[in-house]
Write a protein that binds this DNA or RNA. Structure first.
Lengths: 101, 101
DNA sequence: CACTTTAAGTTACATTTAGTAATCAAATAA
DNA sequence: TTATTTGATTACTAAATGTAACTTAAAGTG
């Protein structure tokens, strides 16, 4: 595993999207803003990793987190412009899956 | 991490592509057939995992493996039609990376 | 024949990441 | 005070990954 002249931006993109659950979380958010438990229910991901992934995605600016001070607290996650910019890629994978899997 | 009504084909696609290095290996093969060492040199992936991923991709029918009985042996990996069908998705990620990372 | 060379892996072992279940924090209602 | 609910975090186990050494096979060299 030596060095390479691989484009660092593509490498980073693949590292992000290539992380387990990230693709499905983004796909899920294509349906619109959703709260933590909605995503957790919709996907076979544990709360522990969902929390971790959402934090990464928020840090990278693909996902926005909004807290509503209700009772009990409501937290909604949504795609940012940067996140929505991946819609084409995700839809592409979806249609590939439909055609080839 | 309970059950969900997630599309099994999309889940499988994301599981495949979302596995570490898989995206970059497919991207690398968009340049045409390449032998084991070429891919290993082009990407920061170890031989151990490259071998494992290529086996998975071959099993899933995205990559074809051809052995040339030369001295020493030459093994070339290339995309199948099913593999090439992912080109759009991969290019999409590439262009997202260029625009947003 | 023994011995070297080279590509393509494989194996053994340490480290990191993921899975599972229990627990915590905050805010309000009873 | 205690219960309830969402959104997490923690502790522990299991699985995946990183690293480096080793193996295999085939042919050329001495």
């Amino acid at each position: 595993m030596s060095e390479s002249n691989l484009c660092p931006r593509l490498a980073k993109a693949m590292d992000l999207i290539g992380k387990r659950w990230t693709g499905l979380i983004l796909y899920q958010l294509l349906d619109g803003p959703q709260r933590f438990n909605e995503i957790e229910t919709a996907l076979p991901v544990s709360g522990r990793l969902l929390s971790e992934r959402l934090k990464e995605l928020e840090k990278e600016g693909l996902v926005a987190r909004k807290v509503y001070s209700e009772v009990p607290v409501r937290v909604e996650y949504s795609l940012t412009d940067k996140g929505w910019a991946l819609e084409g890629a995700i839809r592409n994978i979806e249609s590939w899956a439909t055609s080839w899997l």
